[in-house]
C-alpha cells in the first residue's frame, strides 16, 4: 500500500482552504502538483499520509468542505 494519498480539489482556493484546515489540525500535509493520471487539470492537490485519510476527511467535513476524491499516490 502506498504511504501517501492525494486529496483532489477543484480550485486553488479549495487547495488553500484544505491546507489551512488540515495544517491547523496538525496533519502532515503538502501541496503538490495534481498527478497527471488523476486529473487533466494542471493545478494543485493536497498530499496526506495514507494513515490519516479518515481523520483528514472528518476534519474537512467538519469545516464544511466536501471533498470526495482521495486517491492513493503511486510513486
Amino acid at each position: 500500500m502506498s504511504e501517501f494519498a492525494v486529496i483532489l480539489v477543484h480550485t486553488t482556493s479549495e487547495a488553500i482552504f484544505t491546507e489551512r484546515i488540515l495544517k491547523a489540525a496538525g496533519f502532515d500535509i503538502k501541496l503538490i502538483p495534481t498527478p497527471r493520471h488523476l486529473s487533466s487539470d494542471c493545478g494543485s492537490a493536497v498530499r496526506i499520509l495514507m494513515s490519516d485519510k479518515e481523520d483528514c476527511l472528518e476534519a474537512l467535513n467538519e469545516a464544511g468542505l466536501v471533498l470526495d476524491r482521495i486517491e492513493p499516490l503511486e510513486i
Binding site: T12, S13, I16, R20, L31, P33, T34, C42
Partner: peptide
C-alpha cells in the same frame, strides 16, 4: 498570480487571497 500556476509564489498569492476571503 493567485489561482494560476502551482509554484510556491502562486500558492502564496492564493493564501493571501484566501485570507482576504
Amino acid at each position: 498570480s493567485a489561482g494560476r500556476s502551482a509554484h510556491r509564489l502562486s500558492l502564496e498569492a492564493e493564501r493571501i487571497r484566501f485570507d482576504a476571503r
